[in-house]
């Protein structure tokens, strides 16, 4: 077992453990922090899977953006209610049942197939460049739409929250 493999398994376990932590945690804030851990480990796994650009995006956008927004939301709601953000659980049986069932099913499929990864050296140097080219050529339309979507989401989110404020006033 080399170092790389160790790191790989380490991050896998971290991701799995933090995900489990989210499931078990009753505190929203802790859960958000564990999600952060989970996202970072996944970013590390991306790096190990030769997807550096995705990993960076993951860290920047998710860890830096989304999660901050979420934590901000958590703070806001707990401030509004003034109660500690303890969360109850429902549907435990149904959730465990469907989770285990789905996992068993997926694991079954995964085990059945053999995914032969090509053994020749993976070209990683051109990846970033290729992605950039792809955005501008083959994926230009989705890229533009994604941009519009982002804009729309931003305006929408701002609008929804501003209604709240205007109503509150």
């Amino acid at each position: 077992m080399n170092t790389l493999t160790f790191i790989f398994y380490f991050f896998m376990l971290t991701a799995a453990a933090s995900a489990t932590g989210i499931l078990l945690s009753r505190n929203v804030f802790k859960a958000a922090l564990m999600l952060l851990v989970c996202l970072l480990s996944i970013a590390a796994l991306y790096v190990l899977s030769f997807a550096e650009f995705v990993a960076i995006t993951q860290i920047l956008v998710y860890a830096g953006g989304v999660l901050v927004v979420i934590i901000f939301g958590i703070m806001l709601t707990s401030k509004l209610s003034g109660k500690p953000l303890q969360v109850g659980h429902t549907n435990i049986f149904a959730a465990v049942l469907s989770g285990i069932l789905l996992f068993a099913l997926l694991a079954n499929f995964i085990t059945d197939d053999v995914f032969a990864v090509p053994q020749h050296a993976v070209e990683t140097q051109g990846a970033l460049q290729t992605i950039g080219t792809n955005f501008m050529t083959a994926y230009s339309l989705p890229f533009e739409i994604a941009g519009i979507l982002l804009l729309a989401a931003l305006i929408g989110a701002a609008a929804i929250t501003s209604f709240m404020k205007s109503k509150k006033v």
Partner: peptide, 17 residues
């Protein structure tokens, strides 16, 4: 919602199987 989700998932699982 969560119960809906459960049934949807269950249906998907059954469908997959």
């Amino acid at each position: 919602i969560q119960v809906y989700i459960f049934w949807a998932i269950l249906a998907i699982i059954i469908f997959l199987i």
